[in-house]
Amino acid sequence: MPIVVNLDVMMARRKMSLNELSDKVGLTLSNLSILKTGKAKAIRFSTLEAICKALECQPADILEYKEE
């Protein structure tokens, strides 16, 4: 998929673990893992909002378009 999820990059910048993010966002570890590994087919605006709030970033910092 040409949409790349840079969640791991943002988490590393903010020095935040997956468990910590999971607690802050209210998502399960398995769902966060799906998102982190790029297996996710879609993301809800509410999830994106919660992640941006927790990581203090913009949606563009997490999602990126790369031509295949």
Partner: peptide
């Protein structure tokens, strides 16, 4: 269903 399962 798969798409729904992979929506976070």
């Amino acid at each position: 269903q798969t798409e729904n399962e992979l929506t976070v």
